[in-house]
Amino acid sequence: MSQPPDRNAPTGSAVDAAGDAVLDLERFVPYQLSLLSNVVSQEIAEAYGERFGLAVTEWRIIAVLGRFPGLSAAGVAERSAMDKVAVSRAVARLLERGLLHREMHDDDRRRSILELSDAGREVYSQVAPLALAYERELLAPLSEDERVQFSRMLDRLGERYGL
Rank of each mutant, 00 (worst) to 15 (best):
Gln3Trp: 12
Pro5Cys: 03
Asn8Tyr: 14
Asn8Pro: 00
Thr11Val: 09
Gly19Tyr: 13
Gly19Ile: 05
Ala21Asp: 02
Leu23His: 02
Asp24Gly: 01
Asp24His: 08
Leu25Cys: 00
Glu26Thr: 07
Glu26Met: 00
Val29Leu: 08
Pro30Thr: 09
Tyr31Trp: 05
Leu33Lys: 08
Ser34Tyr: 08
Leu35Ser: 02
Ser37Val: 01
Ser37Asn: 06
Ser37Cys: 06
Val39His: 12
Ser41Ala: 06
Glu43Asn: 11
Ile44Leu: 11
Ile44Met: 08
Ala45Ser: 00
Ala45Pro: 01
Ala45Tyr: 01
Tyr48Leu: 08
Glu50Lys: 14
Gly53Ile: 00
Ala55Ser: 04
Val56Leu: 03
Glu58Trp: 04
Trp59Tyr: 12
Arg60Leu: 11
Ile61Gly: 13
Leu65Asn: 04
Gly66Lys: 11
Gly66Ser: 12
Gly66Thr: 09
Arg67Ala: 12
Pro69Arg: 01
Gly70Trp: 09
Gly70Leu: 01
Leu71Ser: 01
Ser72Gln: 02
Val76His: 01
Lys84Ser: 10
Val85Arg: 07
Val87Lys: 05
Ser88Leu: 01
Ser88Glu: 10
Ala92Tyr: 04
Arg93Tyr: 08
Leu94Ser: 10
Leu94Lys: 02
Leu94Gln: 06
Leu94Cys: 09
Leu94Asp: 04
Glu96Ile: 12
Glu96Arg: 09
Gly98Asp: 13
Leu99Ile: 05
Leu100Thr: 10
His101Met: 12
His101Asp: 15
Arg102Met: 07
Arg102Lys: 04
Glu103Ala: 09
His105Met: 04
Asp106Leu: 05
Arg109Asp: 10
Arg110Lys: 12
Leu114Asn: 06
Leu116Met: 13
Arg121Glu: 14
Arg121Phe: 10
Glu122Phe: 15
Val127Trp: 02
Pro129Thr: 11
Leu132Ser: 14
Tyr134Trp: 14
Glu135Arg: 12
Glu135Trp: 03
Glu137His: 14
Leu138Gln: 12
Leu139Lys: 09
Leu139Gln: 13
Leu139Met: 15
Ala140Glu: 07
Pro141Val: 15
Leu142Lys: 09
Ser143Lys: 14
Asp145Thr: 15
Arg147Glu: 04
Arg147Cys: 13
Arg147Val: 07
Ser151Val: 13
Ser151Trp: 15
Gly158Asp: 04
Arg160His: 10
Leu163Trp: 09
